[in-house]
Design a protein around this nucleic acid. Structure first.
Lengths: 235, 235
DNA sequence: CGGACCATTGATAATTGTCAAAATTCGTGG
DNA sequence: CCACGAATTTTGACAATTATCAATGGTCCG
């Protein structure tokens, strides 16, 4: 969204413009909110907060991406989310005194905007439509998690990998069906709860079958999307 | 919560009293909302709606329980939730024209309260604190799902079963650590994405080790909770 | 160019799924 | 309250899949 009316500080309020939860706001409200926002940035590998930390702000990703994960009993990272531009989290800290459920780590350089718990709470009371936007966004997130849980419940590992690749294609793919992978092979394996080696083997298999082409460690090209869809069993 | 002021129709507004999302309301609001509510009941095995159906109401469980599931490509039920008294769902239909993400089926006789999409939407605009309650509740649900995803990512099946039993104990257990199972063995297996037979074997093993005692198909007694906790690896 | 990190491959062991049959439980109706 | 048939669960044997360990091969970056 462009800034039509003398928005000198546009780079500072950019979070507000970008985020779906504020999409219904009028211009004056945008300024009001921008005043509440603090900005921070992190480098790749930096941890924004650890599981168990107290969170007292809602965090919105302005640019870049982060992963949110829990450590499983057997010491692996279980990735719950990859948050990118426009995503927000920490809303659970709103009313409850809960501590963070997961660790959040930057996957690349990220700029974030934070709004303190108190400010945000007041904001919601005065702008009921923001709440509705948030409910809508949380609903979407829940839907994605429901799909995730469904995928993880598929006993067939090949189908799960196909699902993951299609999900990535949608999120991170370009017009040539080249996916810039947000995480390593190990990260992908951890998202599905399988061994790193199994992921390797399965991807090699897909490459042999000309379904994908593994360009580099950080990107994959989808050659035969239909085959992947068929593998998931949903068609 | 008891009805103090001549609440003849208490049995009709009981949903409102029971549900956390309305907990912050004043008495007059309760009546206002009660007027918006419709009541329905279903018998065990009845389907409230199918995945893909259009939903135009928010549904609150008054008594009984339901399961919400998706059918996986290989034809199994993947149970996403067991909703019981006080739980609500369908809030995703609020703003978006989405169709149901899962099928909902009664596990026993259930009484539900429904509020139409429109009524609910207006309610939220006029009562910002209800929205905040909902955001809080959705946050809790998301937390549970995050834990679920984490559990499903554990490669060790024994640990996952232990997690499930502990979760059940918390939700459905009584003082004697007897759990009234909401679903069949097959249902339990489906929640974890494992074969029914594997679940059987693992439970037998737990029984041999005096960690649980399988009273009937519908209930299990936890004999050694600590052992289960240890099995999950979280201590 | 070198070193650290990440990914792949092979061989083997362990685990789980599948199919078939037997045993148990559940609910209904007499 | 008991008995019977249907449904669910358990068990066994075997096949298929995946994890693990170890070694090799690549890739990225200073």
């Amino acid at each position: 969204m462009e800034c039509s009316t003398g928005c000198i500080h546009c780079h500072h309020s950019s979070c507000v413009h970008k985020v779906p939860i504020f999409s219904s706001l009028e211009h004056k409200d945008v300024f009001e909110i921008a005043a509440l926002i603090e900005h921070k940035s992190y480098e790749k590998g930096d941890v924004l907060f650890f599981e168990g930390d107290k969170i007292n702000a809602v965090i919105i990703i302005n640019t870049g991406s982060v992963k949110a994960y829990k450590i499983t009993p057997d010491g692996r990272e279980q990735i719950l989310y990859v948050f990118t531009e426009g995503d927000f989290f920490g809303e659970q800290s709103l009313l409850t005194e809960q501590t963070a459920f997961f660790t959040v780590e930057a996957l690349e350089k990220v700029n974030i905007c934070t709004i303190s718990k108190e400010s945000f709470h007041n904001l919601l009371l005065s702008h009921p439509d923001i709440s509705i936007n948030i409910i809508t966004e949380l609903g979407k997130r829940i839907n994605r998690m429901e799909s995730n849980i469904q995928s993880m419940g598929i006993r067939n590992v090949d189908a799960r990998i196909a699902s993951l690749l299609l999900e990535y294609l949608e999120k991170y793919g370009d017009d040539n069906k080249v996916i810039r992978l947000p995480v390593s092979r190990e990260g992908m394996a951890n998202q599905l709860g399988i061994a790193r080696e199994t992921m390797s083997r399965k991807l090699s298999q897909l490459e042999n079958n000309r379904i994908i082409s593994s360009i580099t460690n950080k990107s994959i090209k989808i050659l035969d999307q239909d085959a992947l869809v068929e593998m998931t069993g949903n068609y």
